[in-house]
Every structure is written in C-alpha cells, then in structure tokens.
Design a protein around this nucleic acid. Structure first.
Lengths: 147, 147
DNA sequence: CACTAATCGTTAGTGTACTAAACATTGCTA
DNA sequence: TAGCAATGTTTAGTACACTAACGATTAGTG
C-alpha cells in the first residue's frame, strides 16, 4: 500500500472520472456531425433497441434521473429524432418513440463503434476485460448503496 | 462479437459513464458532511499533495479545463479552504494555496478512502487491477486524440 | 525599443447530472 | 364514490464540464 492514502494518482475514483471524460471526448468529434452529444447517443442506442419506452424505463436502463432525462428528451424531440406522447392507458406515463428521421440515423451510428475502437488503438480483448471489471464495480456500487 | 454492434449493454463508454457516476454517488454522502463535492475533493487531494499550484498546473493534473476550475476554485475560496493570489513573479499566474482550515480538513479526509472501499465491498486487488486498466485506456485516449 | 505573438486566467453560453419539491393522473379504499 | 396514497413527469436550484471569445500580462523579435 502507498505511504499516502490520499495520493491523487492512486484513487480509483480519479481514474474512473478521467477515463470516462477522456473516452467521451473521443466521441465528441464523431457524434457532433450527427448532431448528438454523448448522453443523447446513449438514449438513441436505448431507443433503437427497445423503442417505445417510458421515461421511467429509460431512467432504469441508463441509470439517469428522470429530471436529467426530461430536458434531454426535449432537445432530441426538437431535433426531430423522437416523439413524446402520453400513454393512452396511463396518462401519467410518457411513450418515447422514434421518428423516421430518428430511425434513419441508426445507419450513421453504425460507423461510430469502429471509429472509436480504431481511435483508441486497443485490443478488443482488453476492452472486453475492462468492460467486465466495470460491470463488477457498478454492481458493487449499486448493492451497497441501498443500506 | 455480438450480433448488434450498437447494443447498449456492450458499449464500453456506457459502462465507463455509469461506473463513474455510481462510484461518485458513493462519495456524495461521505463528502457532503465535509462540505465538498467530488470534483472539489479531487482538487483538495491535489492541493494537499502539491500546494501551492497554479490553475494551469491543476488543470494538467486533474485533466480539467481552466474554465471548469475557475468557478470551482472560487467556491472553495468562499468556503474558506484556500486562497487565490497572483504570483508576484508572473502576474498572469494564480497561486492557489491552502488556508489553515483547508489543511485541517485533511484529517477528516483520511477517513474517506477506507469508507469507500468498505462501501464497495471489493478486494483491494481487484480495485488495483481496475485502476491499471483505466490508466491504460486514459493513455490510449490521450495518445490518439492528438491526430 | 516598439510591436507582435504566446500564455494565463476569466467570462459567456450550452448541455448534462443531481436533489427536492411541485404537479398531474391513476388506483385503492373507506 | 369521495378522498387519498402511489406513480410518473416536470420544474427549480446548484454544480460541473466543455468550447469559444476576451482581457491582461509576459516574452520574443525586427
């Protein structure tokens, strides 16, 4: 163990924060021509896979507060990528669905993951191992945050 | 490889973003009684180790834009934890230094890392391996963002 | 020595991200 | 069936985080 437990270089939270920001920074120039920010891209990934979904379900999938999603979805709506309609059977709930333009954008998005992997220049193997370890931390953080 | 390259669950950037937010969320209730947010905590770590430092040096250490640090440092100053004085030899530069109150807070902070490790309930070994992999992604993202 | 270029920090503007509180709708129950 | 708790969404307020543009200081050059 290091002599200084508060050494910046040894903090996992510091490495996590910088890794997250650094990788998202790689996405920026690729997503920008598509008119998307990174959180908006994640929302679109969820919609391409599971559309239509409620705000509550999106909140669960993306681990984002509804209060964060609400303005984000409005921006995507005003970009013409999705529609926000009230669920007829439960007017409390909002059904978020893609427009044709939103569906069409998926073809552009197919180029994104290869571009990122090439930009990182890392082995797929190593990325998968990182993904596995991240999944484990996420689970650990979730389990113990309910005490 | 997965059949759907845009599957949300397989995106490393998604796991990174959630892991970062989840772990930071663990810090929140621990840092809140100390009057710190997580980014402010990282700044304090840097100061406890390297004080006094300029905004530019902090920006390099924490990989944050000066424009992000500027208001953050002002908040820490108004909390009475640090001082912001112009460097006498180069009036462009700002010397960020701790106050006695800021130095004293380090004793409180010593309790933070053990509390987090206990909260996560993970092996130190696994955390160190994660740290190593994160360091490698950070390096990869940095190297290839200069093209 | 004057003038230009580079450096450093701040401000302005957009977009997350959180907590807390407000609002509306639904469904249960007395 | 009238009222009330539960559910789902939005708003308000604070704090990052980024890009671009600005102002002040310093350094370099003809």
């Amino acid at each position: 163990m290091p002599e200084n437990p508060l050494a910046l270089e040894h903090q996992v939270c510091f490495a996590l924060a910088i890794a997250s920001r650094s990788v998202i920074a790689l996405y920026r120039p690729i997503l920008e021509p598509m008119g998307l920010t990174h959180p908006q891209y994640l929302v679109m990934l969820a919609l391409w896979e599971f559309e239509p979904v409620s705000v509550k379900d999106l909140s669960g999938m993306l681990q984002l507060e509804p209060a964060t999603l609400s303005p984000l979805l409005k921006r995507l709506e005003s970009s013409g990528l999705l529609r926000r309609d009230r669920d007829a059977r439960d007017e409390r709930s909002l059904a978020v669905a893609l427009t044709d333009k939103g569906r069409a954008l998926r073809n552009e998005a197919l180029k994104v993951p290869p571009a990122i992997v090439a930009g990182l220049g890392m082995d797929i193997d190593e990325l998968m191992q990182l993904h596995e370890r991240l999944t484990r931390v996420i689970a650990a953080a979730k389990n113990h945050s309910e005490d």
